[in-house]
C-alpha cells in the first residue's frame, strides 16, 4: 500500500504537489523518509495534516488516510 500525499507551498516545489510513498506507520517515520528522499525538506519546518486535521507529536497513519504537508507562508 502507498500513501497519497499532497504538498503545499514551497514544499510542492521540492516534492511535487501530489506524490506517494510506501506506507509509513506514523508521522515521525514519514518525516524521516521524506528527509532522506528530499534532503531540502530536512531544513524546513512544516506541519502534517492527516485526514484534514493538523496533528502534533508522533501520530499514527492509517492506510486509508489522506496526508497533507503544510509549510508556513510569510508573504503578504
Amino acid at each position: 500500500m502507498a500513501i497519497e500525499i499532497k504538498a503545499f507551498g514551497l514544499l510542492a516545489d521540492i516534492t511535487g504537489s501530489d506524490f506517494s510513498v510506501i506506507e509509513q506507520r506514523d508521522t515521525d517515520s514519514l518525516r524521516q523518509l521524506l528527509a532522506e528522499r528530499y534532503p531540502a525538506l530536512s531544513t524546513i519546518h512544516y506541519a502534517i495534516a492527516i485526514d484534514k486535521k493538523i496533528v502534533s507529536g508522533n501520530t499514527l497513519i492509517n492506510e486509508t488516510s489522506s496526508v497533507a504537508l503544510l509549510p508556513p507562508f510569510s508573504g503578504g
Partner: peptide, 26 residues
C-alpha cells in the same frame, strides 16, 4: 503557534525572499 509552533529559522529564507506573487492572490 498551534499550527506552526516555532518561528522558522534563517535557513528557510525561501519564504522571505521575493518568490513572486500574482497580484490577485493577495
Amino acid at each position: 503557534r498551534d499550527l506552526f509552533p516555532q518561528q522558522p529559522n534563517e535557513s528557510e529564507v525561501l519564504n522571505c525572499s521575493e518568490a513572486g506573487v500574482i497580484g490577485v492572490l493577495p
